[in-house]
Write a protein that binds this DNA or RNA. Structure first.
Lengths: 205, 205, 205, 205
DNA sequence: CATGAATGAGAATTCATTCAT
DNA sequence: GATGAATGAATTCTCATTCAT
């Protein structure tokens, strides 16, 4: 794991990583205030000053985790771009694939996700950012004519984020559904709606 | 409203209500830990012992607020039952109406909503409960044949809750949309999906 | 001692004053860093939170003492103005009287003096201020023609402050000399110098 | 200078000297407690253990600096002896020369002077010692009949130290006056006093 | 000669809560 | 019904110092 091949940093890097990982778990489970530095170091098997050797403060290590989540998430959502010129069926498949990746990322980073989506003060901001990125994609699709034009894409994007968050916490994290299942179902009714029939579309709007 | 047995209901009840209201605001804005009793009483213009005259502890007053939200919300979602034997167009209208009521309730109880949905540890549980109630309704609709049968209604219900939460916090509370608008739009794509065309339904699934 | 005749503040004011007084002694004896809040409260017979009931921080109570000394000293040196139109013998007597008052003030406020002149970071600033006020007085005398004109009054004033400080700490505080004695001697050689010559010696004394 | 028995005197001595010099500056500027070993070694470009290779403790290096100042000062004041059998004008000149040397020494050793006169707990003791040495000289002069006999030489010596200290810190170190100027002025009014009268003024200068 | 890593021992500060009136 | 005064119990953070290499 030692990032630097150099002589130095071998052991220290390890301690730091350990502390960071334990802290992530603690923050995720107990929240910011109920997480005690004394607990983290106890679990890491180091003394309290050691903690401050690697992190400036409790606030700092927390922020580092939040930032890590934020940037990883941004990177992920950024790379999810629908490729143009594909047919509609492919659009669905592609969206599904994107969702799957997102759910997987959350699944593999449960602690970080909990921190970034729940515990942190920036949670709202982070979700907003995610929604903005999704919206960008959606708007693009609208231009391509894939989506209905009477839907406010801001709302749609926000909604999708809401859906993702909720399912992540209550289905994915609780082990009720796997990423593939969730993405498939979400695409299912997000694209086609819940109604059984189609002719009514007209009656609404 | 007089919960306490005191017949007087004059000054005491007033102080209690005032404290409760200020506490709601503080918890909503600052969260549990950043909310200080000392601050609440200062804003209420009473002394700290007075606080403990009416509430057993910080935890207790917080819990009271959470419980209040929880029961009010339950009551609200409970009363939202689709009436049977209506045609499809009416179903949409009815759902829209229900959503509107929910958004309105949140709008009129912002502090409580923030507490119950965000601040409290039970937030997940509360949302789960709400999802369960919604699911019940949906399942009923499915039986009536209104909705597609290939959708997991648990997922759908959870998703709806996710959507509601997100839009509540980021559209409603920020003053970007009104309850009527939100409910209309949500119904729009929840029922009919986002796709522009319909024939593809087959290609998917 | 209760400043406010009101019902409130009776006991609290007392605790505050006690803490302040003990703190003064501690700071004077041990300096800023070696003085521990835990020690102050122990000596005052109160708990540590009680300290923070009356003082924002260790820094704050220290500053309060420094400020107290500074303003008291300023007031004292301010009121020391030589009256014009007096003859030389009277000038000497007047200066002696002023010095006596200053020495007395220091003697009666040993702790504060130690803090303001020794412990505080502002000690240099405080002495400079004192020198400036003394200089003002001296310059006035020069104009009246009492003093030699070839002396830099800034230097003279600074010197006088240096003398006062030194004698205060090493003669007065050690109980070797009393204010009257010190002021008399200081005037003696400050005005007439140390050289033996001089018939004028007689004019003084 | 090589205090350590090490014959090499190469790198080790260099590190030691560097640390000592940096420490002097830090202690002079920040005082004992605000000076951090971590800071010293950072500025010296060595590790903390290296510091402890050369100095037993923070206290030890500080003491070393204080002792250095103390002995250098003692040496200096010791060598300042008025030669007997000189006339008055020569006495003044000689004293002036002595003062100049003292001011120069302080000027060239600002950090050490600050430490010995201000920062150290022994500052009072050091000044007292200096005063005692000066007193010795003065008493000698008195016996020779140069000085007035009605002055307490203890007081005079202490005063002179007070003056020197004050002017050193507030005139010399602030670059307002040079050693020559200060010594001249101090002699001026220390010997002849501040009063205007006096034909003797002429005899000086 | 030198250091990366680690720590023992403490110090200030905060806050919910209670006692006596 | 109300409060001024006080506190127990934590908790974060700092820093001189050392061990193993």
């Amino acid at each position: 794991m030692a990032k630097k091949g150099r002589r130095r940093g071998s052991d220290g890097e390890q301690s730091r990583a350990l502390l960071l990982s334990i802290a992530a778990e603690e923050f995720a489970v107990y929240g910011y205030h109920e997480t005690k530095i004394s607990n983290i170091v106890k679990k890491a098997g180091v003394s309290q000053p050691t903690f401050y050797l690697y992190f400036k403060s409790k606030e700092a290590i927390f922020q580092e985790l939040v930032d890590l989540f934020r940037s990883d998430l941004r990177e992920l959502t950024n790379q999810i771009r629908l490729e143009p010129d594909i047919d509609e069926a492919a659009v669905a498949a592609q969206i599904e694939e994107s969702l799957k990746q997102i759910f997987r990322f959350f699944d593999e980073n449960q602690n970080l996700t909990r921190i970034g989506f729940y515990v942190s003060v920036e949670s709202i901001e982070i979700k907003t950012l995610m929604a903005a990125q999704i919206e960008e994609n959606l708007v693009f699709e609208v231009e391509e004519g894939y989506f209905r034009q009477d839907i406010d894409m801001k709302i749609a994007a926000e909604s999708l984020v809401g859906v993702i968050e909720r399912l992540t916490f209550h289905q994915l994290f609780e082990g009720l559904k796997r990423p593939e299942e969730l993405s498939r179902e979400v695409v299912g009714f997000f694209l086609y709606g819940m109604l059984n029939s189609r002719q009514l579309t007209a009656s609404y709007s």
